[in-house]
């Protein structure tokens, strides 16, 4: 097994993960990315952890709104309704 130039290395792979997840990679880069993913256990762990990070971020709840601010806005909404 050799890792000549056309193959992607791990450092490049890591820096391209977001572009890959965003669907922004050119088709041939995408192929090289997925080929690397296929054979590299370290990068498999890394990208899974990035996906887990996204899943966890989606669970973060919005912070509380102060009752005073909310009450003022609800008043404004009632006015707007009229």
């Amino acid at each position: 097994m050799t890792h000549r130039d056309p193959d992607m290395d791990c450092q490049d792979f890591i820096e391209l993960i977001t572009e890959y997840l965003e669907g922004g990679l050119a088709p041939d880069d995408r192929v090289r990315f997925e080929e690397h993913l296929e054979i590299c256990s370290g990068c498999q762990v890394y990208i899974e952890q990035i996906r887990a990070t996204l899943r966890l971020s989606g669970q973060v709840e919005p912070e509380d709104v102060s009752p005073g601010a909310l009450a003022k806005l609800l008043d404004a909404f009632r006015d707007w309704k009229k």
Binding site: H3, D9, C10, V45, Y46, A52, R55, V60
Partner: peptide, 28 residues
């Protein structure tokens, strides 16, 4: 060169379980 010397360590918990834990979400 430029490949992992030692790859990232797997996590002790399953991410699906982690997502249900307040502590983990707070950490994020």
């Amino acid at each position: 060169p430029r490949h992992w010397a030692a790859g990232p360590a797997p996590w002790v918990k399953d991410p699906v379980v982690m997502a249900e834990e307040r502590e983990t979400v707070n950490l994020v």
